[in-house]
Nucleic acid binder design. Sequence first.
DNA 1: GAAAAATGAATGATTGTTCATTCAATTTCT
DNA 2: AGAAATTGAATGAACAATCATTCATTTTTC
Lengths: 210, 210
Amino acid sequence: MALIAEERQGRRALAKERRRRQLIDATIKCISKKGLGSATLADVAKEAGMSQGIVNLHFDSKGNLLRETLRFLIEDYDALFMQTVKKSSGNAAETLRSLMEMDLKPVICDRRKLAVWFAFWGEVKAVRTYQKICAAYDDKYDKVIKELCRQIIDEGNYDGVDAGDVSGALTSLTEGFWLSFLINPKSFDRAAAMRSIESYLRAVFPKHYP
Amino acid sequence: MALIAEERQGRRALAKERRRRQLIDATIKCISKKGLGSATLADVAKEAGMSQGIVNLHFDSKGNLLRETLRFLIEDYDALFMQTVKKSSGNAAETLRSLMEMDLKPVICDRRKLAVWFAFWGEVKAVRTYQKICAAYDDKYDKVIKELCRQIIDEGNYDGVDAGDVSGALTSLTEGFWLSFLINPKSFDRAAAMRSIESYLRAVFPKHYP
DNA sequence: GAAAAATGAATGATTGTTCATTCAATTTCT
DNA sequence: AGAAATTGAATGAACAATCATTCATTTTTC
């Protein structure tokens, strides 16, 4: 179906999709540079090298542009997450470690992108749409990680370890590291962060992470 | 020094300080309600039940009001942090746990306040002043917690445990929980978060947290 | 009654949105 | 196939709304 639709698309439709993507890229740059509140449509258009009214032409309104930008960020993350799960299928312990490593990779743990994530998170309580989008995906990832923990606990017969507690700790760990990196990039150390995560995994699941 | 300054203050000066405080409170409410970008000075004045030009009278500019609001939030947190350290002096392990518990107390882990924290964090990369303020305090807390970890490691002769790694992980944990609470308040469970933290402490310092 | 505080209407700058117009691509017609 | 007609993308000037800031005036405090 997607193929048929794409075949139908002439140069025009493809160009349109490209334009939207270029504008979203420009939006990300502008937000990371000036903040969500101060990034204007003129800034975005200039950053993209296009004209004043271009955003309203392609997105109708600023609100739409911002929502689509958030959606793009999430889908970008989601694709990497799913790909990571798929690649390392089979071994739960290995999958879990891969996912933790993924969150610290430069593609994700990039200050420019993180600034935009936090900008949206900062409006989550004020803008219901943002919250819904974020909450839905957070739930999804939490379920996957919890299930991996469950499997590991089952395999290792770990006593007194709750899958939910561990998965909660793991996701919080990475999100907290992101904040540290955003606020204090100089003192942040990717390797140290990964060590922290591994030391935690080793402590909780000693048989799986020797 | 603070006392002398306050004694010097007549009713007027006190009222002025009270006004500033009321305006900061109103600002916090407005930011949590509308977001940092959409909260206007008219909103703040209305929330405080005062007149249009009141913010410029007391803070000169909107930028100043926002900076002072961030400073207020931090000093508020700082006071509690220092008080917690002071109270539970003596035992490093106990102090550390108290600090972790503190971060999950309703006074701190309050969605309205957290929304404002994240709003500022979302602009950290764009507004240098915010970054400097946040980074300075983050450093301060990191040092305290790292020192506590060092003591615990020393007491317990823990091998292969790095104080910096553990303190980094602990602060990341709480900050990550704050984000979870902000995004998904329904599925967030204070007790579960505390269990996660304790499970981490138990895993890393088994002799101190049995 | 003088000084300070507070008000709220007015101001000017910023910014999202609209729209008439231009230009290029695609389709239709011969 | 090539000319004419149509469509839709893109522009940027103009518009309208919003909002921080100012200030003349009123109210309160000492």
